[in-house]
């Protein structure tokens, strides 16, 4: 089954001929870029990273390490989704505006370099969550080979492990704006606070977590297995994170869960606009 899906992925890439890959340095895009280089050769592949205030520095480090290790042609370009007031207002379809900015720039790059198709790293699981960014991809003619091949996140991790990619067990790392609940404006200062607070948790050895920004409150979502250690360090964590500018630091008792800020949308019945 897994081999069949991989074969389908290879077939899709061959059909494309030459590709420009939206490349964040996460599990999916690293895998996709590596397979694209293996199948099409480096002359027919360009991985492009959009650098913006919502892109974590730690993610950029992984992105650069992988292109160096695996010989993936790479380009970084500046994107500025914050300049779009539709994005900055942080509506439920915020990702649509961010991805519109990204894909419109990547289409230009692809055209300039003579690359036939722009690709993203959406996978088969992404159809289950609220993903307005996928609409922007469709509108810009971006293809999603991992999704088309039916590869799930778990399967991409397994294939990445077999290929020796360092990202195979890397926690998911969506953009920093995903830590702000819908309706709370996205600002450079808030993104910086989230990134700094998450660096505090990373320094202390926590592995799976999010710092959710609720205005003056930081709500820490930490994997259930790591919660006891967070409680042991309660005073130190509270002090360090308050220094960043939060008045109050809260530890969510349910722990880290993917897409937690979409829970409100589902409760309100507004999650059907995939």
């Amino acid at each position: 089954m897994l081999e069949e899906k991989y074969a389908r992925l290879v077939q899709i890439l061959r059909e494309c001929g030459s590709v420009c890959v939206g490349y964040s340095g996460g599990v999916d895009s690293v895998f996709l870029a590596k397979v694209a280089v293996d199948v099409l050769g480096p002359a027919n592949v360009l991985a492009v990273t959009g650098l913006s205030d919502s892109f974590p520095a730690v993610q950029r480090e992984m992105a650069l390490e992988c292109v160096r290790r695996f010989g993936i042609p790479h380009l970084e370009l500046r994107t500025d989704e914050l300049a779009d007031p539709n994005y900055a207002a942080n509506p439920a379809n915020r990702c649509y505006f961010c991805k519109t900015e990204l894909w419109s720039k990547l289409k230009v790059v692809a055209a300039e370099r003579g690359l036939a198709v722009v690709l993203d790293g959406s996978n088969a699981d992404d159809g289950h969550d609220y993903r307005p960014g996928m609409q922007a991809a469709r509108e810009h003619g971006v293809r999603s080979p991992l999704f088309e091949a039916g590869l799930t996140k778990a399967e991409i991790r397994e294939l990445s492990r077999r290929m020796g990619l360092p990202t195979w067990d890397q926690p998911s790392a969506p953009c920093l704006a995903s830590r702000l609940p819908y309706g709370l404006a996205v600002t450079r200062e808030r993104l910086r606070q989230v990134e700094t607070a998450e660096a505090v948790l990373r320094e202390r050895g926590f592995r799976e977590f999010r710092v959710r920004h609720h205005g003056e409150v930081a709500r820490l979502e930490i994997a259930r297995a790591e919660l006891p250690r967070a409680v042991e360090q309660a005073a130190e964590l509270a002090a360090r994170i308050r220094e960043i500018g939060f008045r109050r630091v809260l530890l969510d008792v349910e722990g880290y869960r993917r897409g937690a800020l979409n829970e409100g949308l589902r409760l309100a019945g507004a999650g059907g606009a995939r």
Partner: peptide, 22 residues
């Protein structure tokens, strides 16, 4: 008890870390 507290109308239940005495 978190599910019962959420049922009162909260979306999240969280501990104030400044209040925790270990």
């Amino acid at each position: 008890l978190a599910p019962e507290i959420k049922a009162l109308g909260f979306r999240y239940v969280a501990v104030d870390l400044a209040s925790v005495d270990v």
